[in-house]
Design a protein around this nucleic acid. Sequence first.
DNA 1: CCGAGACTAGACAGACCGGTCTGGTATAGT
DNA 2: ACTATACCAGACCGGTCTGTCTAGTCTCGG
Lengths: 191, 191
Amino acid sequence: MAAKSAEQLSARERLLAAANELFYEEGVNTVGIDRVIERAGVAKATLYSAFGSKDELIRAYLEQRYQARRERTMRALEKYESPRERLMAVFDTLADSLSQPNYHGCAFVNASAEARPGSPIETAVDGYRGWLRGLLTQLAQEAGAADPQQLAWQLHLLYDGASVSARMDHDPGAASPARQAAEALISAALG
Amino acid sequence: MAAKSAEQLSARERLLAAANELFYEEGVNTVGIDRVIERAGVAKATLYSAFGSKDELIRAYLEQRYQARRERTMRALEKYESPRERLMAVFDTLADSLSQPNYHGCAFVNASAEARPGSPIETAVDGYRGWLRGLLTQLAQEAGAADPQQLAWQLHLLYDGASVSARMDHDPGAASPARQAAEALISAALG
DNA sequence: CCGAGACTAGACAGACCGGTCTGGTATAGT
DNA sequence: ACTATACCAGACCGGTCTGTCTAGTCTCGG
């Protein structure tokens, strides 16, 4: 459970950590294999025995971010009882992410923009988006929305829009209008 | 005024057309100079005498798309009188774009995800986003919103979110929930 | 007729790409 | 003590990248 100290991380874990930093900050295409292994302090052969290809390393990097986001979001949900509060908790978690100093946009949007069609990247992206949409839909239904799928889609648009705006407009407060809009849309959908 | 036939387009125009197709469909980093000049039927030296660098070609490509979108949007606005209808016309134009068969996401979001910080790409992106935000703010103000900047920001989030969703969820109808949400937010902001 | 400007074709440079392979070391299980 | 495993360092391969440069063609104004 406790975090391992840097020296005792396995080669695979160090590779994933290095990939997470470099791919997220500079883009999956810009960053070459050599920079990843250099930061991880790992031999090139080790990377290829662990992941098989760069595409698979990228997929593992996205999968890791997906799991981390899911856990963070679910942990925030647990603090509330009502579906409506739980919906807003999703946007609270988003606000936390967007206001972090090294925020560089949604990793999935960025990776998808660089991905070749049919690459394993798209699989990871679909998984992440499917989970978030499903979560929003379920909460919208529990809240009693007349059309839960429609409300979930609208909230998903706000979620994505805030991620885009935070990066492209250099404004870490983009989650605030998203949150207010979400409140208004939820109220309208329940009335 | 009339479109020139393909043969009498200047080398610069043919380069911009080729860049528009290739960069938009496959990404600005993935597509190399050689593919652009091959499609344009132009020598490499001509590209570099006309644009100076690949980055500048990308900037010109984005600038061209920005102008095209601005003209299309403004033309749609002119058909309406009331600020509220004019706001919705912005989303009508968006719906047209998203439902085109070769839609590959917002060119500015995609290019920005691939851009190195400080590259001329960011200048073009800022110009585009500043124009759209300004337009939305002005219309929101004319419509009588209590907080025009807040409403404009919210609508901008929906606009971006729909672009992202159309591409990443493979759903060209993403403008529809954006439009409905925009209606609800505008009503709430005027009430 | 002459020369300037715009253009084409393509070789070339230097860097970097993803990926493979060899060779050597350190450690742990039996 | 032997061996399997995991790992590191780095050479190497074929290919691609942006950008430069040479050399030759075509057109048009004066």
